[in-house]
Structure formats: C-alpha cells, structure tokens
Write a protein that binds this DNA or RNA. Sequence first.
DNA 1: ACAAATAAAAATGTATACAAAAATCTATGC
DNA 2: GCATAGATTTTTGTATACATTTTTATTTGT
Lengths: 208, 208
Amino acid sequence: MNIKEAIKEDILNNQLPRGVPLRQVELSERYKVSRIPIRDALLSLKAEGWLSPHGKAGVMVPEFRWEEAEDLYLMRSRLECLLFEMAFDHIGETELKAARLILSELNQESLSLIQYGEMNWHFHSVLYQAANRVALHQVVEGLNEKVIRYLGFQYGPLGYRVESEQQHEELLWLIEQNDKQGALIFLQQHIEEAGKRLTEYLKSQSSQ
Amino acid sequence: MNIKEAIKEDILNNQLPRGVPLRQVELSERYKVSRIPIRDALLSLKAEGWLSPHGKAGVMVPEFRWEEAEDLYLMRSRLECLLFEMAFDHIGETELKAARLILSELNQESLSLIQYGEMNWHFHSVLYQAANRVALHQVVEGLNEKVIRYLGFQYGPLGYRVESEQQHEELLWLIEQNDKQGALIFLQQHIEEAGKRLTEYLKSQSSQ
DNA sequence: ACAAATAAAAATGTATACAAAAATCTATGC
DNA sequence: GCATAGATTTTTGTATACATTTTTATTTGT
C-alpha cells in the first residue's frame, strides 16, 4: 500500500505527466520495484479515480476538469448533508472531543498536501460516524478522496486554508449549541462555497 | 476482464462462500488461470464493493446487510433524481429511441440476472446521459453496480420484474408529455419503492 | 500524395518461481 | 487448564520470464 501513496503524492505534485499513458516499466524503474506491484497500484488508483483509462490498455493521469470538480461538490453537498443530518442527534462528547483533537492537529503547519486533505476528511468523518451508515459513509469518503486531487489548487493559489479552519470551529460550536438546522445549513454553505471557489478558479485557468 | 465477470456471476449465484476468506490458489484452480489475473480481479472487485477485506490480507464475499441496501437506494434516490432533473430538458428523440430499444430487449426472457441488471441500468443511463455530467453519472453508475449484488433477492423471491418494466414504460410516457415535475416524482417513487421492498425483505430474512 | 494493409516494435497480460508476511499449531511455563 | 512464546505451515506479495495484444512504422497500391 506504499507505492500507491507514492504515486498519489507524485500526481498531486505534478511529478507525473498528464494526458499521456503511463508506462509500467518506467514506473517500475522509478519506484524500484517490479511491474507486478505497479500493476496493482495502477489498478487500484484507476478504480479510485486517480487515473483514467488510456485507449484499450494503459492508464494516464487525467486532466483537471472544472465539470468534475463541480459534480464532486454537488454530490458532497447532497450526501454529506444527508449523512450529517442523520448523525446530528447521535453526536456526543466523544465525537466532539475527537473532532477538536483533529482540528488542533490540522492547525499545525508542516503537513503535506495529502496529509492535510486526509486530516480534513477525518474531521468530517468523525462527526458523520455517529450516523452509523456504513455504505453512505464510504461513498462520501470516496468523494472526499477524489476531491483531494484538486487540493493543490484549493490550498495553493486559493489560500483557503485559514478560512476553512474557522468554519470548522464554527461548525463545532453550532453542534455544541444543539442548533441542528443552523449546523446543517452552515455545513451546506461550507461545502458549496468551497466547491464554487474551486470551480470558478478552474474555469478561469482553463479559459486562458 | 473476463474473470471478473465470472467471479461476479458466481457471487450472484451463491457459488462462492460468504464471510470466509477467498484463497487465491483455489480461485486460480477454479478458473484455470494463474494467481496474477486472480489478484487483479480481486483487487478490482474489492474496489467496486463486490468483495470486502478480510483481516490484514485477503478478501471475502460480504454478507447481505439491509442497512447497505437502504443506504444504496437512499443515495440512488438523491443523486439519480438530481441527475435526471439536469438531464430532462436535454432528452430528445435520440435518447427516447435508445431507451425504447433497451426496454424491448429487457422484455425478452432468457437474460441472466447480471445481464438483466446491466440492461436495467442502461435504460436509466441513456436518459441520464443527456445531462452531460460525467462524474455524477459515474458515481450513480457505481451505485447501480453495487445494487446488482442484491438483484438475486429483488427478482427472485420478490418477483418485481414485470412491475418494474411497467414503471419504465410510464416514465417514458411522462417524458414524452414533457411533464418534468411528474417524471421526477415518479422516478423518485420508482427508486424508493424498489429500495423499500428490498430492505424490508432483507430485514425479514435476517431476523429469522 | 494519401489510404490501407502488413510487418516490426513496444507495451500490456499471464505463468512460474521465490520471498515476506500472516495465520495456525504446538509446546512450555505459570 | 490457560495463556503465551516459539516454530511450522499456509497464504499473500514480488521478481523474472514468456505470451499476447496493441501500437507504431513501413510498404504498397491507387
């Protein structure tokens, strides 16, 4: 499971060419392993949306497309709010404590992009776990995984990081106040705003 | 891509034990290939939800769980209705024609369960395609793939097949009448009813 | 000059063999 | 009698070698 992570990192940091087929031998030389574990990794990453098919055989790093980003956040908005609503009444001190801990770790600098993205998901995940909706949770997790691909944009040029953390704080506060409706609407806005920013940025990038 | 299909068939028809780890050598003997293509297939099927991890290494055929079925149909309801709404105004004679063709093929008997499930999805898919929402479409496709695992229940003891086809006819009719609101509500009921039936059936099964 | 057919190459897919890790069994101490 | 530490066996993970498929280049005909 280590080569997968390495390839993900390299995709995020634009160390691998986009749009052209990735050759298994090149990758096996690059990561100093044989082609078999490379094949395994490519297969997994393709299934997870980090790679897309190239012709009849072979994979490539997909280009960024604002349409995909828009769809992802649209789905996150619908499904995460549903999940959060189901979770809300079951969120107790345990979950809040865990969420606060993650938030404090998130504030530390010196996190790689991929680590930050995962921590960000963990924060939301801890809250959603209270809903006890495994299948729904997994799909939402998959969406957040796919979103990580775009984080380079979101936390690079967009400099969204500080603002995002303030919103996390506020969400916790609303939960503590037991303001279900308020928290729900806030979460929806939190997601939709992030989606809108990213989508607009991607559009402006692709049109030039 | 052929061994994957074979394993899927066997999972659907309960030819593989549930809950216990699948051994790669056994499968390689069963399907008369070496372990490498088996590994590839298991990896893909795990990513698609047909198999789940068993301990630190190895996979197993997951048990049926009504909670999963409920989640799947909940998500289908939310996302498919959204997708359908986006598609509606772009559905033309081309899509309707394709949908009618699929429907006529669906009426033929002599389709395996897995083929029927795929045809069923194709019908919906053709309509959704008009929305031109690739990422959203793919997620919905994934949900329908996962639902196929449960089709043995839905079209076996539940005998839902004829009724489902009548509903498909009616949906097409509503589209032809350009009754967007009506079609939307009808689709939602179509999905939610199927989900409710399946979930209730699974509950009754697991409680005895 | 362009298109289609064919031959060469490069890439993926698969089999066999070996290494590492996990699970199981056994023996030993308390 | 039970739990734990170690050894044994089983299973998965990886490397190398070969087969098949796909892609690219070349040739040939119009």
